[in-house]
């Protein structure tokens, strides 16, 4: 981070956008479809923003609501859940369960004013690397428009990295 980093308020929005801020996206990726698509995206050298972090999980159906909320609580700007296409879940209907679960979390996010738009689920197969990269870019841009997660711990902003 640049040493001359200073807080500035862009007029017209409520959101604090420190200069140099890049959306921090956590992507829960089903290890059957999404992780494979991520691998394929790398293999063909697609590019997507480096503010993304991938957390592999056996099935999106196993993602707990608490994990999603926890991510936001700890300051992630956006969360993308990438699961199998309909009918393609290796655990039959885990992806469907994840969709339903996400709806509830989104409602909570809206309710607390964080914005349900910060959480998104997409479905793709392991062959859809370009789509994977597109989704990574899209959520990054969505979050960029929404601004940083206001719950982001203040100390993080001053801590910086060596």
């Amino acid at each position: 981070m640049s040493p001359d980093r200073s807080e500035s308020r862009s007029e017209g929005t409520r959101t604090v956008r420190p200069p140099g801020w890049e959306p921090e996206i956590l992507a829960f990726c089903c290890s059957y479809c999404a992780s494979a698509a991520a691998g394929e995206a790398g293999a063909v050298r697609l590019r997507y923003p480096a503010g993304t972090r991938i957390l592999s999980t056996p099935c999106t159906g196993g993602i707990e609501m608490e994990h999603l909320l926890e991510a936001f609580e700890k300051g992630v700007d956006g969360v993308l859940v990438v699961g199998c296409p309909d009918g393609g879940c290796h655990f039959v209907e885990g992806n469907q369960r994840a969709l339903r679960r996400l709806e509830r979390v989104r409602a909570i996010l809206d309710e607390i004013g964080l914005g349900g738009g910060r959480l998104r689920m997409v479905q793709l197969s392991d062959s859809m690397a370009p789509a994977f990269a597109d989704h990574m870019r899209e959520i990054t841009e969505t979050i960029r428009a929404m601004g940083p997660n206001p719950l982001k711990p203040a100390r993080k902003e001053s801590a910086g990295r060596s």
Binding site: G39, A41, G42, L46, R47, A50, T52
Partner: peptide, 20 residues
């Protein structure tokens, strides 16, 4: 940790790659 397909190969040249 997959730091090749999920990092080096998609963020090559980006200095944020190492942080990721």
């Amino acid at each position: 940790a997959n730091i090749r397909e999920e990092c080096a190969w998609v963020h090559g040249g980006d200095e944020a790659a190492t942080r990721k």
